[in-house]
Amino acid sequence: MTTFNDFKYVFQMQFNKNFGYLPYYVILQIIISLGIVIGFTYLIGSSDTEAILFLATGAPTLVLIITGIVLLPQQIATSKTEGYHQFLRTWPVNRCIILVADTLIWLIVVIPGIVISILVAHFMFYPGYDVTWTLVPALLLTAFTSIGIGYGFSYLLPPQLSMALSNVLAFGSLMFAPINFPMERLPAWLQNVHDFLLLYSMAEVMRDALATSTFAASTGNYVNLAVWGIVGFCGTIVLINKK
């Protein structure tokens, strides 16, 4: 019961602190998701069903990635600059509770953008969704991994460096990661790199969950994400407990 009360207290504190920014984050995620689903169709200049399906299934993945590696690090960097990070570490609660509470808040932020992008893509383009029950675990695993990695380098690096790295990762995931296009379009060496990185695995599990008759994620994709997520959160716990 004590753990639940601690979680309730921490969640309320963190939610109230960020309440003024949360609507902005929600709107931003909706704009990003719609920009990918609709705006990228003008860029590729094609109504090919496969291309549309890549955009439709890639948009939720990018929303989760941008939340975890861009918005979250920016929020933590601001907290460090304001001194709130040091204040947070004085709370008489388990540090894991702080991470779980923050993770839940960011999950709430990303859900509207994901739902709206899926619905808009369906009614505008009819890309050929074939949703399975794996959507929920795929979404949660992708979100936890993205948030875990965002937490990890945000607590490890100074605010300026973490914000710079988040921008580099956002640009790389948008332009050079096989999220909105097939892996085969990349050079062979970059394909080999993505086999070990988390971005391609995120895209694969989300594509498999949203269009299982067209795409298929491997067990290795799920294992890869789980390893990255565990490393991110465990590293964050070590850093946040470090004196």
Rank of each mutant, 00 (worst) to 15 (best):
D6F: 10
F7K: 01
Y9W: 11
M13P: 15
Q14G: 10
I30N: 00
V37H: 01
F40D: 01
S46F: 03
D48I: 02
E50A: 13
L53F: 00
F54A: 08
L55E: 05
G58R: 03
G58H: 06
L64C: 09
G68F: 08
L71T: 12
L71M: 14
S79C: 11
W91Q: 15
W91F: 10
W91G: 05
V93R: 00
N94Y: 05
W106M: 13
L107C: 06
P112K: 04
G113N: 01
G113C: 03
I118M: 11
I118F: 05
L119Q: 06
H122K: 10
F123M: 12
M124V: 14
F125W: 04
Y126Q: 15
G128L: 00
G128A: 11
D130M: 09
D130P: 12
V131C: 12
T134F: 11
L135C: 11
P137Y: 13
A138S: 15
L139V: 11
L139H: 13
L140G: 07
L140E: 11
T142Q: 15
A143P: 15
F144C: 15
T145W: 12
T145H: 12
S146R: 04
Y155H: 13
Y155T: 12
Y155E: 13
Q160W: 03
Q160G: 08
S162T: 13
L165D: 02
S166G: 12
G172D: 03
G172Y: 04
L174A: 08
A177F: 05
A177L: 04
I179P: 02
N180A: 05
N180E: 03
R185Q: 09
W189T: 00
Q191R: 07
Q191C: 02
N192C: 00
V193L: 09
H194R: 02
H194N: 05
D195W: 05
L198T: 04
Y200M: 02
Y200L: 01
Y200I: 00
S201V: 02
M202H: 06
D208L: 00
F215N: 03
F215C: 03
G220T: 08
V223I: 15
L225Q: 02
A226T: 15
G229M: 07
G229W: 04
V231Y: 04
F233E: 01
V238K: 13
I240E: 09
